[in-house]
């Protein structure tokens, strides 16, 4: 697939996420909202390989992959608006999006995408030779028991399952490396998986590596693990308390800052050294959150793709315009739908 086509998928996924963010900020979407901004190169580079009959098992951050898979955008937005015409009749919401025709399922339970993906792969092996399943997961989820158990199960049963571990470095508001032992790729390799690592900001690399791994799976070889690093551009969810504290310590993050200051100063409790350790840990987390890539910065996968297009003297502006029109139409259609919370 040409870079321009991959970029088009990425731009479309990004515009979708930003449209959802806009509706959410207006209060038209309830609850938590986990955007997949920063994951677009992984979504485009992997999911564009899928064929009819392939399964797709997703997480709470599922919308970029679903957009690339071709699930109707207006139906997804309608779902988030809680409309009866939504993808799931307004009953699922953004963490629980299901599209049976695409064999695509998501879950709000961290780690759950792996066993479901293994089941999709088992069904493919029995019912649809040459078909396969892809499970997207985060690196934080790889510490969940069911994820580790699936590393064993899928290898023991030689299932055609590609697990794509989208590593943004953060397990909610905790730095993943502070709660994760060893290397994730080595874990999978120890269970006999074919393992590849890729820069998840570079869509062409992701597309190439995913293509190789999926080719192996279609040929009946055992499971593969793709470790893709990428930035998390909008926090764990919109309104992420860590980012609020980092970016607005005197406003929205004020109560949190006060709690830390007051905790450190209250008599009784740990020694001075222990308290210093606690405060230093929090300061390190906040610094790392502050230094994380922002949207449209150099570390943003869309910028990486635009730069690559530029080097080939290809223009992204026309693609952006066309994508914006498509998303605007989807938003209009979703808002115009009957009923719902909006």
């Amino acid at each position: 697939m040409e870079l321009a086509q991959l970029y088009q998928q990425m731009a479309r996924a990004r515009a979708f996420e930003l449209a959802a963010k806009d509706l959410w900020e207006q209060g038209l979407i309830a609850g938590e909202m986990h955007l997949g901004t920063g994951e677009e190169a992984v979504a485009a580079g992997v999911v564009t390989h899928l064929e009819d009959g392939d399964g797709l098992s997703l997480t709470h951050r599922c919308t970029p992959a679903l957009a690339v898979r071709g699930v109707p955008l207006a139906a997804m937005l309608s779902e988030m608006l809680g409309k009866p015409g939504g993808l799931c009749g307004g009953r699922g919401g953004h963490m629980h999006l299901f599209s049976r025709p695409h064999l695509a399922a998501s879950s709000g339970i961290v780690g759950a995408s792996l066993p479901t993906g293994a089941g999709f792969a088992l069904a493919a092996k029995r019912l649809r030779r040459g078909k396969l399943a892809v499970a997207l997961t985060g690196e934080g989820a790889m510490n969940q028991g069911m994820a580790l158990e699936t590393l064993n199960l899928a290898a023991a049963w030689s299932l055609p399952l590609l697990v794509v571990c989208i590593d943004n470095g953060w397990a909610i508001t905790t730095r993943s490396d502070t709660v994760t032992a060893g290397k994730l790729g080595e874990r999978a390799r120890a269970f006999g998986w074919k393992v590849k690592t890729v820069d998840g900001r570079d869509v062409e690399s992701v597309y190439a590596v995913a293509g190789t791994l999926l080719g192996r799976l279609r040929a009946g070889k055992g499971p593969a693990f793709l470790h893709a690093t990428c930035p998390r551009l909008d926090g764990h969810f919109l309104g992420d308390p860590l980012l609020q504290t980092v970016h607005d310590p005197l406003g929205k993050g004020r109560a949190r800052v006060q709690r830390v200051v007051s905790g450190a100063a209250t008599r009784g409790g740990g020694s001075i050294g222990t308290r210093a350790l606690g405060v230093a840990h929090l300061m390190t987390s906040m610094t790392q959150a502050r230094l994380a890539p922002q949207r449209d910065s150099r570390g943003d996968p869309l910028q990486v793709a635009r730069k690559a297009l530029g080097k080939r003297r290809q223009d992204h502006a026309a693609i952006d315009t066309q994508v914006q029109e498509e998303i605007r139409a989807a938003v209009d259609a979703a808002l115009a739908g009957e009923g719902g919370d909006a």
């Binding site: 397990a171 709660v179 949190r256 709690r259 222990t274």
Partner: peptide
């Protein structure tokens, strides 16, 4: 550490433990 920042700062990382997503 983030959710219970006050306790974390008062009692330290040995009594307020950040867990992986491994319930």
């Amino acid at each position: 550490p983030m959710l219970r920042g006050g306790l974390f700062a008062r009692y330290g990382p040995e009594r307020v433990l950040a867990a992986p997503i491994s319930e």
